[in-house]
Design a protein around this nucleic acid. Structure first.
Lengths: 404, 404
DNA sequence: GTGGTTCCGTTGCTCTCCGCACAAACCCGG
DNA sequence: CCGGGTTTGTGCGGAGAGCAACGGAACCAC
């Protein structure tokens, strides 16, 4: 889906510049032509012609001036991305839910639907639900199927880039070996991009959340499993084989429990929400939901605080290693457990500063994600929006024709 | 030193295309215009005009045809980078040596000098020796100082990008806190780029060695210390603060020895060459050089094999973690210990396949570096060559004038 | 020698961006 | 109310860049 971009032709240059304008408009919301020229470094006349093209395509429209201009002078005509320019679909397959959102090209969420599922859903059940939810969401958003440019999908496990299959360390066994991209592409008749949930969380925080101005960060998702997503140099990094970020399977205890990945003592076996409720079960005589455990910990319950704190310390040791290896500017913690706030983050920060070399561990900011349970599905949409950002004019035209 | 590159102007487009031609010529050695057109995707006429410009500048010249062309037809005129176009300096400050090389823009080594130093050299002593060696090397290479485009430098410790200072986990205490880039820039009156030794090893293997066709790999340098360098997406990655790759300070033993970084049980305390000779000392009654220990191991000595194997396993555990996190295509092992060959690599591979998730650990190739002790200084030169690769025409002119 | 093939340079042609000039739309002071 | 100042948006000419096509050049095969 990503275009070559290194093409040396004149057309590619214009594409890049046009894409830059779209990108600026997306991040800033509304801008005048003059402001666009300043930001992109292009001349005002070039910006004018590019904007005219985008207007002719219906991608950009003029907006009301709300705030007064900074000083005297001709008031600027503000421009913004047009809602009718198209929309993208985000689909997230979680452990016990399917969630679908519709987002327009200006990054505004038009619809957001979630359906709880029986545990351990199979891939087929998931796809059925997704297609169903998509129809509902489109209706709610007032978007015709033809206006869709593409769909992004999050699956509960790593995607091996060579085969396009879900890898063996997926949370849901029913998904291992399926090729979700092809499958959904067939069902929706749309271009589909796929990534695993943790990578999408990272992408979402990069696009909308705590990583907006950060070029290099680690996103950690602590839920039933523990996953990681990397943003390096402002781009999602998935490694040579597409599965980078698997921090949940770092060994933290040589003789620990056997993990579903086949090894022993993985971080996930001691610090996932599953491990936490397991540990709390005998003491409380019942199996809590992780939300209850988090609430107890925040309310002062010693046992819950201790168990979550221990998990945090284990995660902190691994995060410290990542800091040594990658020296990120930020670590963003998401997933169900991040609701625990400082009960989780304080001991995590402690361990990072203890185990990372000072220059790496001392500088890194460790913060909670700001998108909550919406992170993955937003990231799925962002997966497509990213590609559209620097998009080729021709390509966008084709896509609209093809879709319409 | 790196230029903006995102400029939207026509000149920037031409710069990019010209840089692409230079890059192709550098990697391939000799190419015809037609072949350049095929490789870059540019039209033959465009390639012709660009080559004409480069010829006018004296950067490119025609070469003899050596191998016969593939088939009948007019024989191609081969082009190559001109030796007189300029040269770059590579300077490596090791623990007990200073090494200087002169490399031309076609990546040919014109001179290579090394001077052993007393242990624990100070930064000032090092710089004195470097300047001295530089004069000798230039004489030997037949390169006038004015022909130099820039110098790359490797220092025995991490460089913090914010301050430009050598970080606290440097091997040589006399270097901590100095700003080597500024210092050398003053002394040589040349643009200077700096990185730490492990990063340079990675860059060298990327440019000349085992990482030539690999976009994502980890370079591990096992010597008195253990360092790492990352190549991600075909570029050296140094993280937000410039110190990425510090795999030597991953904790492998909670209650291990205190490391010079201040933590306990770092990989470096159990698997560096220093640790290896420490372990062998009581058994052999003498303190071996690491080269001797390696020779013994290769010759069948059980104790040496065991000690090196244990170190390899410790390294393997950490490399496995990196594989989980970054999913590289290759791991290249360099440094003094890499001379041990499979005595080192076999147990290392074992541990990686045991501790990494199968999709990451099963695919990764673990190979020795091919550049030996020359790796760092070659990388220092490559640091400058990289920047020249995509260089701006005007800038190159300025640099030559400024230098001359 | 003739035809085929490949390589290289030249010539229009189109596309793209920029600098500059100019009109438009506002504010302000007198 | 009116002219100066300021900022915005647009039109035009010019220069730069890349491409397709043509033709000449140099080789091989028959």
């Amino acid at each position: 889906m990503r275009r070559s971009a290194s093409g040396g032709s004149l057309a590619s240059l214009r594409d890049r510049n046009r894409g830059q304008i779209v990108a600026e408009l997306r991040t800033a919301g509304r801008l005048s032509r003059a402001e666009l020229a300043r930001r992109t470094g292009l001349s005002r006349s070039t910006v004018s012609t590019l904007v005219a093209e985008l207007q002719a395509r219906g991608l950009v429209g003029e907006r009301e001036v709300d705030g007064a201009g900074p000083q005297g002078g001709r008031p600027p005509v503000l421009l913004g991305l047009e809602r009718t320019a198209g929309a993208v679909l985000g689909i997230d397959f979680g452990k016990r839910h399917v969630r679908v959102i519709v987002v327009d090209l200006a990054h505004a969420v038009l619809a957001d639907l979630e359906r709880p599922m029986a545990t351990e859903q199979s891939a087929t059940e998931g796809f059925d639900a997704a297609v169903d939810l998509t129809e509902q969401a489109l209706a709610e958003a007032g978007v015709a199927p033809g206006e869709l440019i593409g769909a992004g999908m999050g699956v509960p496990g790593p995607i091996e880039s060579a085969s396009g299959e879900v890898g063996s360390s997926a949370i849901l066994p029913g998904w291992v070996g399926v090729q979700p991209t092809d499958e959904l592409q067939r069902r929706l008749e749309l271009p589909v991009a796929t990534a695993n949930d943790a990578n999408l969380g990272a992408l979402a925080e990069l696009t909308w959340g705590a990583g907006r101005d950060v070029a290099d960060f680690l996103y950690v998702k602590v839920a039933s499993g523990i996953g990681g997503g990397l943003v390096l140099g402002g781009e999602l990094y998935t490694g040579a084989g597409g599965i980078a970020g698997e921090i949940g399977h770092t060994m933290v205890d040589e003789h620990g429990a056997v993990c579903r990945c086949g090894n022993r003592g993985c971080l996930e076996t001691v610090a996932s929400t599953r491990a936490i409720v397991d540990l709390l079960e005998p003491a409380r005589g019942e199996r809590l939901a992780i939300e209850q455990a988090v609430a107890l910990a925040r309310g002062g319950d010693r046992a819950s605080q201790r168990v979550i704190g221990d998990a945090a310390r284990a995660i902190g040791v691994v995060v410290a290693q990542v800091c040594n290896i990658l020296n990120p500017a930020k670590v963003i913690v998401g997933g169900d457990l991040s609701a625990a706030g400082d009960v989780l983050l304080d001991p995590l920060r402690d361990e990072v500063s203890r185990h990372a070399v000072p220059a790496a561990g001392g500088r890194v900011e460790i913060v909670p994600g700001v998108l909550g349970r919406r992170a993955e599905v937003l990231g799925a949409a962002a997966l497509v929006l990213r590609d559209v950002d620097g998009f080729s004019f021709e390509r966008a035209g084709e896509a609209q024709q093809q879709a319409g």
